[in-house]
Each structure stands twice: as C-alpha cells, then as structure tokens.
Computed example of a mutant assay.
Amino acid sequence: MAGSLPNPEYLIEALRFKAEQLGLELLGITQPTTPPHVTTYETWVKQGRYAQMDYMATERNRYLRVHPEAIMAEARALLVVGMRYPNPQAIPPPPSPYPFGRIASYAWGKDYHYIIPELLKELLKELEAWLSAPILARIYTDTGPILERDFAQKAGLGWIGKNTCLIHPRKGSYFLLGEAFINAPLPPTPPFTTDHCGSCRRCIEACPTQCILPDRTLDAGRCISYLTIENKGPIPRDLRSSIGNWVFGCDVCQMVCPWNVRFALSEGSPAFAMRPDIAFPNLIDELSLSPMDFKARYGNTPVMRARRRGYLRNIAVALGNSADPDSAPHLGLTLKNEPEPLVRAHAAWALGRIKTRLARKHLSEALQREPDPDVQIEIKAALEDTD
C-alpha cells in the first residue's frame, strides 16, 4: 500500500462518520507499539491476579501484549472503536414477588463478538473504496492478546478509570471495544493524557467483593464478573454471599461512577439489539432450564460463555442469597435431579442459607443418596448452617 494518504484528516473524519452510522460511536487511531501500562500488566501477572485465566500468563500472550507489532508484521496503524451498550439502570427491577437475578447490561443483547468484527469489516470496506486499494487487517474484540483499553487511551477515546474501565469524558464507560490492525498508514489521533478520576473512590468502595486494587487493576479471583463467567468451578464459599443476585457479570463499579451517572445514555448502540426479558431473570424458573432451554433462551448472547452448569451454579447462589423459603422445593428438586455436581453443590449451599425445616429435610435426604464427595461436603456444611 502506498505510504501517503490524500487529506488524511478528512479521511479520519469520514471514517468517524461512517463508524457512527454503523453503530460504532467511538473511533480513534494509534500505532501498534508497546502500550503505556505494560509494567502494570506484567506486575499483575507476576502477582497471580489472573485467577484461573492461565491464558493471560502464557509466554506467547505475554510477549504479544508487550510487543503488539509482532501480531501483524504489515500493520501500520491500529484502528480502535467503541460500541455503546445499554445503561444497566435503563430497565428498572421488576415489581414482582418472585426472587430475580441480574445480568450485566452488556449481555442483554446479541453477543458483541458477533457484532463488532462484522461492523469493523464494513468500515474497512469503505476505507478500501476511499483508498482504491485492498487492506490487510487483523480484527479483535476482547479476543486477542492485546491491552485494548491501553490502545483506546492511546487513540484518544478516554482514560482508564480506577475500576479499570475506559471512561469517555462526555459519554461514560458503557462501551465495548474492538480493534483492527491494518496496513494502511493512517495518522494517529491525539492520545487522551488526562485522568479525571481525581480523589473519587466510589467504585472501589462500592465493589461488593473489594476486588479493585490501588494500581487500577483487579484481583480477578474476587471479581463477580470473573466468578460468574470465567470461573468454571465452584464459587469460593466466603465470596458467595457478596455476589448478591448477580447471575452473569456485574455492573456495580460502573453504576456508581459519576461519569456514568452524569453522561451515560440509557440505550445502547443501534447495532445492539437489547432484549429486556434477559435483564432480570426469574431465579426459580431459571433453575429448571434444561440444556435445550438454556440454548434456546441464551443462544448468541454472551450468557452462553458461562455454560449451563456455570449459569445454574450462579442461579443457585442468588437463590441462597435471597433466602426465599418458597425456593426450597425447587432447590430440593435440583439437588435430587440435576445431573451436574457443580449445580447440586451450590443448590445445597442455597438450602443451607434458607434455614427452614423443609430445607433441612431436602438436605438430609440428599445426603443419603449423593454419590459425589464434593457435593457431600457442601450438603454437610449446609446442614451445619441450618442447625
């Protein structure tokens, strides 16, 4: 590709206009060079703060995060975009008598992994037409070994807040990011160099599990989003009560951020088809989802990432935190009929939290028939809780 561009400033503005038409509200350009917070990332890895996400610490991925130029040798620019998703307070909790869960608002619609790459491809088609030349590209959206918020800051889209989210000074932080390494020599847009968090600690103090660290990183093993999504095993007993009714992800640290309170719009990008029925699931109904039902309800949404067993584990924990006596029969059936030991174990914990005579009856009966030793341990602990 030629090394010069006609009217590059005009071209960037045209790209921004086209991006907004596609539903990509933020756009900036930077160079695929070592990002500014590499030292923070390396320290985070050395401290083991990535929990069981071992892919974060592989030699290859660590190298590529430090040396993004190795991802695509032909790359001469890095295009960074942001797609706005709904404000989690756009839909009020249901005024209903049943216990309900909460799903992080970015997961209310179609999985962004299906949306953003296709929109970036459409954007690059326009760029190819303007340049009258083919473009080589490598596209990511939370899928590759790059520090994408660092690059978003380098491209001028905002600053990285104390809660680790990218915050735009006039639009808040409810954005999903995407990147395209391209061989077109687009000039970089000015980086965002100021920090507007100041002395505010609202996100740190509001975090239910206190997972936000002083260096603007997270202790992933304590983060509700990690515990309910990436974590494939049991949720640590000492953290279950702090999860509340979050069953997939968590929005707390963003909901309290003054920049979202002041500026975040209610609706998401037009490209993001919100499904309000997903926001506050009925916990009792969800507990009985079969594999087919789970796929039918959540297919093509981010919730699929937790898989059915992880999602029902989360549902059981939320039911335990609700301590609703009416859920005891349903948890008892789960303890009896659910094929996944992980789900049965957390259903036992939930029954221990309810502390009714019926809950104890279900636990006692389950202990006589339960074949899995880990579930047996949970049942015994739950029985002690009901004493």
Rank of each mutant, 00 (worst) to 15 (best):
W108E: 04
P35F: 04
A70Q: 00
I71S: 01
P6L: 13
E69Y: 02
P94M: 04
I71N: 03
Y63L: 11
I103L: 02
R62D: 00
W108P: 08
H67G: 00
A73S: 14
P95L: 08
L78K: 04
Y85N: 00
L5Q: 06
Q21T: 12
G23N: 00
M56L: 15
N61Y: 13
F17M: 13
A70R: 11
Q89P: 00
M83W: 06
A77P: 02
P93L: 08
E69S: 10
R76L: 08
P97L: 02
N61P: 09
M83N: 06
N61T: 12
I29W: 03
G101P: 06
S105Q: 09
R16S: 10
E20L: 06
S96F: 07
R102C: 00
N87I: 07
A70N: 00
Q21W: 07
G28T: 14
K18T: 10
R102K: 12
T30R: 10
E42M: 12
P97N: 01
P35H: 05
L27T: 07
V66W: 09
Q89L: 15
A14Q: 15
A14S: 15
I91A: 01
A90H: 13
P88H: 03
N87A: 08
A107W: 12
L64S: 01
R49T: 05
R62N: 10
W44P: 01
E9K: 14
A70T: 07
A14G: 10
L27E: 04
P92S: 12
I103Y: 03
P35N: 02
N61Q: 09
Y98E: 11
E9M: 01
M56F: 14
W44E: 00
E13R: 14
V80P: 02
L22M: 05
Y85I: 09
S4C: 06
R102W: 05
A2D: 12
L26W: 06
R62I: 15
R84K: 11
L78H: 03
L22I: 07
P35E: 07
R16I: 03
M83I: 11
Y10G: 13
A90I: 05
E69N: 11
M53K: 11
E42F: 08
Q31A: 14
A73P: 03
S4W: 13
P93Y: 05
E13V: 10
N61V: 14
V38R: 11
A90N: 12
E74V: 14
L64D: 02
P86Y: 09
K18D: 10
E74W: 05
Y106P: 03
M56A: 13
E59T: 14
A104H: 05
G109R: 09
T39G: 00
L64G: 01
A104M: 07
T40F: 06
L5F: 08
F100C: 04
